[in-house]
Amino acid sequence: MTGASELTILLVEDQGLVRAGMRELIRIAQPDARIDEAADYDEAVAKLQQQSYQLAFIDVDLKSSKTGLDLLKYLREAQLDTRAIMLSGRSDRPLVLECINAGACGYIPKDISSDGVFQRALDTVFQGGIFIPVTAMARDGVPAPAAPPVPSVTAAELGVSGRCLEVLYHLCQGLPNKTIASRMQVEEGTIRKDYVPKLFRIFQVTRRTELLVEVARRGVIIPPLPLPAQHHGDT
């Protein structure tokens, strides 16, 4: 994830020592990023209401009345342009898929012990890819890989381009069809009946959650959308 503007990251983790360690790992991957921290749901929401963040790393198991999943749902309901990456000591498939289905675009187990794997997970996210543990990558007729792939396949190489690529980008942000249609200034039916089925055919899936899992399984890089052109008056 590169660009002239400063990368803004919100790290939400209730354990101070764990949060400090993750902050350093993120700093290694993105030395120039602005990293803000929150220890619980309320603190995170307060920061999100004051500042726009491109990425949020959220602990699923926040020790408070509201969990990381609650915060994820807040992000999606508020339609914030923040990619949510969930963090957890657990990596069971139902939990991973629940997070993806709720609008996360990545899931990094905190108990990864292999050297460099956590850093590779961060690199995947910062390259615009989706990282999920291999425990969630298997699907009917398609076995899980031995290890998460390094992002190396562009969406264009798979035949995804133009407005279809825009839709894929928004789907990977966890946005619903109605919001995607509003941002692309088209009818919701166009998203639901045209673009989404086309993406399902390309990736050979039948549901959104399967689509994101397949993006992760194939190591597909989803480029960020270009910033809208600035208009300085009528011509």
Rank of each mutant, 00 (worst) to 15 (best):
S113E: 12
R76K: 13
G219R: 00
C99W: 09
A56P: 05
E77P: 03
R208V: 09
R76Y: 13
P143D: 02
I58R: 02
Q204R: 06
S64L: 04
P228A: 05
R90H: 14
Q173E: 12
I9L: 08
A147K: 15
L62G: 05
A33H: 00
G3I: 01
M184V: 09
Q30R: 09
D111R: 14
S64W: 08
A44Q: 00
A46Q: 10
Y195T: 07
L165Q: 04
D42G: 09
A78E: 12
K193A: 09
V134H: 09
I9R: 01
L11N: 08
G106P: 08
L17M: 11
T206P: 10
R139H: 07
V160M: 02
F126C: 07
A181V: 12
C172Q: 03
K73I: 14
D42A: 11
K198L: 15
D234K: 13
V150A: 06
L7S: 06
L25F: 11
V150M: 07
L95E: 12
E43A: 09
L168W: 07
I221H: 02
L69Y: 12
D140A: 14
A181P: 14
H170T: 10
A29F: 01
S64I: 04
R218E: 00
L72E: 12
Y41S: 01
M184C: 07
P143K: 03
Q15N: 15
S52V: 14
C105V: 04
K73G: 11
A33N: 02
Q173N: 10
E98N: 11
F203M: 00
D59A: 11
I108F: 08
A78D: 12
A181T: 15
G68Y: 07
L227G: 12
G103I: 11
L227T: 12
F126A: 08
L97W: 11
I202M: 05
P176Y: 06
L199T: 02
L165M: 04
V215R: 00
A4Q: 08
L72A: 02
S114N: 14
A33P: 03
D14N: 06
A136M: 01
L71F: 07
K198E: 05
E24Y: 01
A216M: 00
K178T: 12
S64H: 10
A155F: 08
T190R: 04
L199H: 01
V12M: 07
I112F: 15
A156S: 13
A144M: 03
I221D: 06
P149L: 02
I58L: 06
P94C: 09
Q173K: 11
S91Y: 07
A216I: 01
L69N: 05
M137P: 02
R83N: 13
Y195S: 07
L165V: 02
R93F: 13
L175K: 11
Q185D: 06
R192W: 11
V12Q: 06
P94T: 10
V205Y: 04
F131V: 01
S52P: 08
D42R: 07
T8M: 09
H170W: 10
T190Q: 03
